[in-house]
Nucleic acid binder design. Sequence first.
DNA 1: CCGATAAGATGCAAGCCGTCTCCTAGATAT
DNA 2: ATATCTAGGAGACGGCTTGCATCTTATCGG
Lengths: 202, 202
Amino acid sequence: MTVSQSTSADRPVATRRRGEALENALLDAAWTELRSVGYAKLTMERVADRANTSRAVIYRRWPSRHELVIAALLHQQPTGGSRIPDTGSLREDVLTIMRRAARRISDIGPATVTGLLNDLMADDASHAIIDQLARGGAEVMNRALARAAARGEAREHVPERVARLPLDLIRHELILTHRAPSSATLEAIVDQIFLPLVKPLL
Amino acid sequence: MTVSQSTSADRPVATRRRGEALENALLDAAWTELRSVGYAKLTMERVADRANTSRAVIYRRWPSRHELVIAALLHQQPTGGSRIPDTGSLREDVLTIMRRAARRISDIGPATVTGLLNDLMADDASHAIIDQLARGGAEVMNRALARAAARGEAREHVPERVARLPLDLIRHELILTHRAPSSATLEAIVDQIFLPLVKPLL
DNA sequence: CCGATAAGATGCAAGCCGTCTCCTAGATAT
DNA sequence: ATATCTAGGAGACGGCTTGCATCTTATCGG
């Protein structure tokens, strides 16, 4: 009985985690921390504590807070899953894309998104992530535009800058308000700005 | 000899500053600190050191870093001085306004602007500053638009959202690139987006 | 069963924050 | 001029967070 150090009451903790299990625990901890206190107040210490481990374990994997958070986001909602909408109407397609973006933002937390954007831009190594994000957006919009053009709903050649416009404006709205844009805002962007710019000339 | 504490070699420092002189010194220190290390790395400690005083003196005046920085910006380049351009052409008027904004941003430092925006939005009390900034922008644009409408260069009623567009897009560009937008970017925004949206219908 | 590996605990120096307490310069009032 | 009062300046405080370095020890692969 004296040697019963490994059995139970001594450490109610599960056995030492490793590899993927540990990584998942860390990413989950980061994610819940993100949702509960937000990006600004998220610290390596809190995440480590929440995952019942130590900061060193985190630093072994991610060198900085924003890399950890990016990893947590990707882990939480993998980037796939976004089928391109095809409702038969350009307006609805674009609105769907925008609503999806707005939804994603409010899931993550507006303040988190802006804080993260800021930190990413300050880090040269992370610029890639940003314009990958921008490119992805333009991609989706171009699909919708191509189909609309085939239906005669939009002109053939729409400048990249115009195609990006709806998502860019969502981002801008986010920056200035720290809230995901309302449905009315989305519709205003589409009806007052986007559709007039891509409508066929005659 | 023992009592010679006040004469000279003891403290080469000028006499103790007060009121406005001290405040100017602090704001100047904040400004140069801003230019040399940027907003992210600006600390109360560094500013105090640079101004040869102590943090307490700063806190007596501004409760937070972003309030200090805002004060420093206003002190450095007072908000006036911006006469509304009237070149006789809407395109040139708008471009002038945009160039001015871009200029101002690169003077202050793009990273500083975005960091500041982020902190301001996180602080409920400072929201006012932001939409005062937005309103100011819309104001100027509306002036230019009104004159253009009188010349028949633009339609009569342009939605607020469209009027704000050029400046909003500058801001967005800033967020994503942390650099003041290039001249080519400004022209693209005007020619591909803004002018088509405000051009008279027929 | 035996290492190699990595988890986990802990300690450290550094930097910054925001507040507080002293002491005293200098402006103001009497 | 002397007393008084305000606010500058110096510094210490406890607190938090960061990265890194150490040490022990659980667990995996062979």
